[in-house]
Simulated scan of single mutants.
Amino acid sequence: MRSKEGDDTESLSLPVDLIIEILTKLPPRSLSRLICLSKLWLSIIHGKYFNDLYLTRSSTRPRLLLHRYCHDTRRSHYSSLSSGLSLGDSITLPGCQISPPVRGLICCVDHDSSIVVIGNPSTGQFLTLTDAITDKIFFGYDPVNDLYKVLSMYFVHDIDGSVVLEKSQVLTLGGAQESWRVIECKYPYYPGTQGICHNGVVYYGAWSNLTDRRSVVVGFDLRSEEFSLITLPEDVQIVSRFESDLVRYNGKIALVNVSLTRKFDLWVLMDVKKHEWSKYSVVAPTCDFFRCRGTIETGELIFEQLYFGDQFSILYYDPKQDKARRVDLERSGDTTSSGRKLFVDHVESPMFLPRKFIH
Rank of each mutant, 00 (worst) to 15 (best):
R2L: 02
K4W: 14
K4Y: 08
G6L: 02
L14C: 11
P15D: 13
V16N: 07
I22E: 14
P28K: 13
I44G: 14
I44H: 05
I45S: 06
G47N: 09
Y49W: 10
F50I: 08
D52G: 02
R61W: 10
L66F: 11
R68G: 13
Y69R: 10
C70G: 06
H71I: 11
D72Q: 12
D72W: 03
D72N: 13
R74K: 14
S82C: 03
L87K: 15
D89N: 15
D89C: 02
I91L: 12
C96E: 15
I98P: 11
I98Y: 11
V109L: 10
D112W: 12
V116C: 13
G119R: 02
S122V: 00
T128P: 02
L129H: 06
A132Q: 06
T134L: 07
D135V: 03
K136E: 14
I137G: 09
P143Y: 05
N145G: 07
D146P: 04
Y148A: 07
K149Q: 14
M153A: 07
M153E: 13
F155T: 04
I159F: 11
S168T: 06
T172N: 10
L173S: 07
Q177N: 05
E178G: 10
P188Q: 03
Y190P: 05
P191G: 12
P191E: 14
G192T: 08
G195Q: 08
I196N: 10
I196E: 11
C197E: 11
Y203F: 11
Y203H: 05
W207P: 00
T211S: 10
R213W: 15
L222F: 01
R223P: 05
E226T: 08
S228N: 08
S228V: 12
I230K: 01
V236W: 01
I238H: 01
F242T: 06
E243Y: 05
Y249G: 03
K252D: 09
A254Q: 01
L255H: 08
V256T: 06
S259I: 00
K263M: 15
F264Q: 00
K274Y: 03
K274P: 03
H275S: 10
Y280H: 01
V283I: 15
T286C: 15
R293Y: 09
G294D: 01
G299I: 06
E300Y: 09
L301W: 00
L301A: 09
F303A: 01
Q305N: 04
G309V: 15
D318W: 03
D318H: 07
Q321K: 08
V327P: 00
V327F: 11
L329Y: 00
S332D: 15
S332E: 15
T335G: 07
T336M: 09
S337D: 14
S337P: 04
L342V: 06
V344W: 00
S349C: 06
S349A: 01
S349K: 07
K356A: 12
I358Q: 01
